[in-house]
Amino acid sequence: MSIQRADIEKLAELARIHVNEDTVTATTLGINRVLELIDQLRAADTTGIAPLANPLDATQRLREDLVSETVDRDALQAAAPAVEAGLYLVPKVVE
């Protein structure tokens, strides 16, 4: 399995990562090397083995439904570039 330059460009756009003319070739090669490793893993015989969603042999712990967090909005918003009327401000997004 290998991917092409066009795949990298599309993924980069979806992930909001900037790749330019200089880096796209190297990135394509690098990711293809990772995919070769994955191909080796896929070659292993997994007949009769249930797929694993997580390598830990453990079960998700559950939390009681209690309100345990107190929100210090001012402290949390101190890290934000722009706030107003309690809202985080971001570049305009209208679909």
């Binding site: 345990s68 967090e69 929100v71 909005r73 949390l76 918003q77 809202l87």
Partner: peptide, 19 residues
């Protein structure tokens, strides 16, 4: 996934915790 309250109509971002 967090212990922040879900009540409707609270002042903006007063129920949005670090998680």
């Amino acid at each position: 996934f967090s212990g922040a309250a879900t009540a409707f109509g609270a002042a903006p971002n007063t129920q949005a915790c670090a998680i």
